[in-house]
Design a binder for these strands. Sequence first.
DNA 1: CAGAAATTTGACCAGTTGGAAAAAATGTTA
DNA 2: TAACATTTTTTCCAACTGGTCAAATTTCTG
Lengths: 230, 230
Amino acid sequence: MPPIKVKMLDPKRPRGRSGKSGEGRARPQTRIQKEKQDLILEAALDVFSLHGFRGATIDQIAESAGMSKPNLLYYFRRKEDIYKQLIAGMLDVWLAPLRHMNSDGDPLPEIRSYIRRKLEMSRDFPRQSRLFANEVLQGAPRVVDMLEGDLKALVDEKAKIITGWMEQGKLRRADPYHLIFAIWATTQHYADFDVQVRAVLGEGRGGESRFAEAATFLEELFLHGLKPDA
Amino acid sequence: MPPIKVKMLDPKRPRGRSGKSGEGRARPQTRIQKEKQDLILEAALDVFSLHGFRGATIDQIAESAGMSKPNLLYYFRRKEDIYKQLIAGMLDVWLAPLRHMNSDGDPLPEIRSYIRRKLEMSRDFPRQSRLFANEVLQGAPRVVDMLEGDLKALVDEKAKIITGWMEQGKLRRADPYHLIFAIWATTQHYADFDVQVRAVLGEGRGGESRFAEAATFLEELFLHGLKPDA
DNA sequence: CAGAAATTTGACCAGTTGGAAAAAATGTTA
DNA sequence: TAACATTTTTTCCAACTGGTCAAATTTCTG
């Protein structure tokens, strides 16, 4: 006589918070679920930002989160689910400073504070920056839609504001899109190419000071350029 | 009686051209060796620049080069050998424009032409740029030495030149290291973040024109900044 | 052309990877 | 605390990975 198997309902895996449409009234998150998911996302950010999607392994993430691989997979069914949630979460943060740029303010201070905010993000959230850089560098297969949709829309909107400022003579005439690219590039450089920056600056200037220096430099550059005063 | 094995000399694998010290008088390259190695490096550049070191597979590279995996491994013993050779080769090219910056020239034109050259490299060798970006982004495990050695030395030298120009009043005073970073960042952005740039610029401006626009913009930015003429 | 050298192929292997399944352990709640 | 739901562990697997090896094939050279 075979051992009697009793009912055994669906294993009720908790699904990631990303929750696509068809989720109905899923049961609310338990305490443990919230804790563990945060733990996993935190660990995954470390690993993904350093190795990219393909380069990262579930094992690494699990170990870094202090749990077993199957246990991790209980919270996120697939490696990609973790990754997607990280990307979505970071895009929001990443774009906040740009959203914040206000057409009512004075152009120069507005741009200056945008640069400053982006630079602070490079300092405070370098892993997020690198995660995104890795993704875009590898062709952004998982976020092209977002880039062509939300991101483009936002940039279009802000580009109009900048153009308006230029037409009022409050800003030197220049292409607003390339201006935004230049701000992105220069500020994120300190997060994405951190190793290189440190290597070139050497021992003496490797500390936190480089962000303050960068802020000063970029402010001057974007305001006056390199031409000496007449 | 076992089948008689006849001599079978060393399989004489050709070694990669990187040739560390102990190579003695290796026999010269055959025609096929040169052709096939170039073919492999070309294919590997495609794959590595898109997926990074860990993300790339020998199979992919072999297929992309139109040969079998063991055949590829006949020319390069290890995956890392291909990668290293690519990195070494590209670093040279990558640094050429900076080496070219001359203390005898006029500062502003000299810097302007440096920017232009770097931008052209982003346009003409985007894969090399991405290969390097991938490496640095992931902590540059295979090139930190070079960064702290050759690269730092070169930048130190050029930074001195720039400082000299500033002291002569030919350039606005600013940190030369951060200036160099800013040039790197803004120019490489068009290669490394190509997908993003295209997505934001949209259909209409996705063509080659963006490099010309970028050149114009960056020239203005580095020369005058954003402040409108008084 | 014969023999030697160089090149290519096919079979194979051990380690790693993402992921599934079921049982065991732990928590939660009536 | 009993019944149930949630969480964790153990075991396992098939696909993929980097890399080896010997044999078969092709190319070169005298």
